[in-house]
């Protein structure tokens, strides 16, 4: 009947003290060899990721060092970008990046919040799922496709608007409107960026709003508040930090967004002199000039812009993560 011990060689010495085969694995010290090898491989892989992250900093710094030593920090405040004369200053791109990103945020945040509130608070169940899926689809369309749509649809449309504004008395004379009406420029870039960052703000906002505890809502409802009053007094304040994190995360996206912006912004290396004026961002100048850059200094200047972009994106991401993490650790895309 004692068949089961038959499956185990140990049964041989049963009962006699010390008679069983030792519990140490044969081969002495390295008894956990398999575990050690496995963990070792994983640690090497993990370390590779750290190496990669370090490589970003090292490569960008090394390649940008020439520009940094030539221009110093004046690189960031000079608006003179002239490859022919070998003068490089990144101010127009810093300004262009800032204007496009902030402009897009101003347009995107209310819209994204509206869609987040719609799917979490207002829409019936059967509609909420599809709508939030469609909003997510906005993020699935590649930047370059938005860019192409921008060139063939949005740019002509903006040109019409610009022309109409130029011929409107009282508005057409304003300095920030009076630029040649090409359709390519700051405003078009803002519009396309708006569409592209909405899904990021919306999905973070949606996640943090769903995390607001039911008691918060119920407390407000119990006071006789209307739905909007509940949202305003109980839900939104509670979710504020998280939503702010989502906004900053979107800012990070907007700063680095490349293809679509490059294709509609006009790529002029001067400071923008109007809402519709062509200009450039840090990302777009790299995309536009790097492959054809002539001379080490030109390449190095673009690399230095890349370094600035890299550092900026890290600071912004850490900030966003910290804000979101304060509310709901590890919950957000």
């Amino acid at each position: 009947m004692n068949r089961i011990t038959g499956t185990d060689g140990v049964a041989t010495g049963a009962g006699s003290p010390g008679g069983g085969r030792p519990l140490e694995r044969r081969g002495g010290k390295g008894f956990a060899a398999g575990d050690n090898i496995f963990l070792g491989v994983l640690v090497i892989i993990g370390a590779l990721i750290l190496v990669v992250a370090g490589a970003y900093l090292v490569v960008l710094y090394q390649r940008g060092e020439l520009a940094l030593s030539t221009f110093g920090l004046g690189f960031l405040v000079s608006s003179d970008w002239n490859p022919v004369r070998g003068e490089f200053g990144a101010l127009p791109f810093l300004v262009g990046t800032l204007l496009t990103s902030l402009g897009a945020l101003i347009l995107a945040v209310p819209l994204a919040l509206a869609s987040a509130l719609f799917v979490t608070e207002y829409a019936p169940r059967w509609l909420a799922g599809p709508v939030s899926y469609l909003v997510e689809l906005l993020a699935a369309i590649p930047s370059v496709v938005y860019g192409m749509w921008g060139i063939f649809v949005l740019v002509p449309f903006v040109r019409q608007i610009h022309l109409a504004l130029l011929t409107t008395p009282g508005i057409g004379e304003l300095a920030f409107i009076r630029t040649p009406p090409s359709g390519l420029g700051l405003f078009t870039a803002i519009l396309i960026l708006t569409v592209m960052i909405i899904p990021f703000t919306a999905s973070v906002a949606r996640d943090v709003i769903t995390l607001v505890p039911a008691e918060q809502r119920e407390a407000a409802y119990a006071l006789g508040a209307t739905k909007w009053e509940v949202l305003r007094t109980a839900v939104l304040p509670y979710a504020r930090a998280g939503i702010m994190g989502g906004v900053i995360l979107s800012l990070g996206r907007a700063l680095g967004e490349t293809m679509a912006v490059t294709m509609v912004i006009g790529n002029r290396t001067d400071l923008p002199d109007g809402l519709f004026a062509p200009t450039a961002t840090m990302a777009s100048i790299i995309a536009n000039e790097f492959a054809e850059a002539v001379g080490n200094l030109h390449v190095s200047s673009l690399m230095l812009i890349g370094l600035v972009l890299f550092l900026l994106s890290i600071v912004i991401n850490l900030l966003a993560r910290w804000l979101i993490g304060r509310l709901a650790p590890r919950s957000v895309a």
Binding site: G46, L50, L60, Q62, E257, A283, M303, S313, N317, R321
Partner: peptide, 30 residues
Amino acid sequence: RNPIVAPVRLMSDVLVGVPAIVTGLVVYGA
């Protein structure tokens, strides 16, 4: 509990936010 986990998690979170064009520059340079 492995000591390398915290930096790996942080770095992979940070890399998500790095603009793709910057990755292009780095791979060009390297």
